[in-house]
Design a protein around this nucleic acid. Sequence first.
RNA 1: UGCCCGAUAGUGUAACGGUAGCACGAGUGACUCUGAAUCACUUAGUCUAGGUUCAAAUCCUAGUCGGGCAACCA
Length: 564
Amino acid sequence: MNDQESGSVDFVRQKVETDNASGKFDGRVVTRFPPEPNGFLHIGHAKSICLNFGIAEEYGGVCHLRMDDTDPTKEDVNFVQAIQDDIDWLGFKWHGEVRYASDYFDQLHDWAVQLITAGKAYVDSQTIEEIRQGRGTLTELGIDSPYRERTVEENLDLFARMRAGEFADGEQVLRAKIDMESKHLIMRDPIMYRIRHAEHYRQGDDWCVYPMYDFTHGQSDSIEGVTHSICTLEFENNRRLYDWYIRELGIYVPEQTEFARLGLTHTVMSKRRLLQLVNDGLMSGWDDPRMPTIRGLRRRGYTPEAIREFCRRIGVTKFDGVTEIALLEHCLRDDLNRRSQRRMAVLKPLKVVIENYPEGEMEELEAINNPEDESAGTRSVPFTRELFIERDDFLEDPPKKFYRLAPGREVRFRYAYFVTCRDVVKDDSGEVIELRCTYDPQTRGGSAPDGRKVKSTIHWVSAEQAVTAEVRLYDHLFLESDPATIAADEEWTRHLNPGSLETLQGCCLERSLGETDVGDRFQFERLGYFCVDDDSTSDRPVFNRTVTLRDQWAKLKKQSPTAG
RNA sequence: UGCCCGAUAGUGUAACGGUAGCACGAGUGACUCUGAAUCACUUAGUCUAGGUUCAAAUCCUAGUCGGGCAACCA
């Protein structure tokens, strides 16, 4: 029984229920997802998206999408579009139009003037370094700026001139007048506005003063009537200031609640590190199938359903933990197992000749498309004298637990016949290049009239009818489970899993895979789930391995590497 | 060294003063025309020390450990 079935909800939802019960927000539920459009969304954002949009859906409320765009030097319209695409792909609908903090710049400016007038804000003419010095440290109190006691008139005039563009970047800043001796660093006269003579991607040159996050976020929530402003743990300290601005302004009061961001093993999530992977050319782009970005996962073949189920299962708490990527992969397989049609594909081909099968003959065999879904029907696969099987499915000198093909051994070729290996052909270097086999015509369809059993069933593809393709095998980005802890001064990218991408050419797919569309997903039997990559063309198909099937044999092999 | 937050099996979580559950992982077995899926079983936990109470994972105090806060980033 999972948490949902047991009726328990996370602490954020509990808060919403408590507020609904007490009538705190008159039963309204308004949440928001507030990304800064300076990068692409990743699976950590998906957790937040599922939380915010999920709560709105579950409690009859709405969720806004708001671009938190207060730093013109970093933000870009392309990210705005990408963010919308990703949320849409995940299957969520924001309420109304996309909102922008930058649309509130006029209001924010007026509120700044209001605080100046009330003697709660002042223009500081210190240099950036002086301000830093004056702030004090974790253990030393801050000291007042020499400009702290300017008159309201002077401050009003200075702020107007800041806004009018009379000063250069960094020359002046508007600060809230709170308490330089506060134990809470955030309250030591935080900066409200800084000068940036930069073009804003939406506001153009209208402004040369831009509000800081703290002077923007709470008020934006307030303007939009947000009830539950849900953010990650690192903003806990900021809540004190969030509340201060709103109360001093005397405006509607939303409630901020913080939860732990997602940590995932075998990958990195920080924007900085992801950016470096792309910039250093270590990844093909933000949509490299190895990236934990939504775009990367999407291209890799993940389904939105799997990601949402994962987000549901990890829960929401204030504990900063690291979730094993195995849970994500479990959710993926669970979803893909139900929905994917099965196909046969040989990734590393080994030629097999069925000596007693007539040359030039071909027959059609019926194969089940999806044993989990009868309505998926069947297809026919061609069987011929010359076939390919997986190199891994044959061992000349098999260890005890190896059930697959070996000299003298009979196995079942899936949906076809029992086949016995009679001879092994090697090249000059001793490498096995071909298997001479015989089949039992009595076993057509896969079972023997005499009731004899075989130890295993392997997949195969007709040599004549095979579709040749490139297949990209993906694995975890890092071998270490927690690469985030690798020190910043270390060359952390050296820890990348050298086997995170293996590109295979000349893979042999069954005939029916000749016609596919980008994004199509299949299970290649006994191998894993694969999807058609963006790079795929009709004469040059490219498949990505989304995730392998669970594999008992691989585990056995790991335990005793001598085996195979 | 100041302030804020946190701590339950390997991992993620539930239990809201009254029998510590669930999921993933790992292990074993059953079944099997995918060494998949499915099913069954096993494994393993309340950070420490005090206190309150008939009763504490839960409340209180102290400590330990971990995270966050000293951008004109968000």
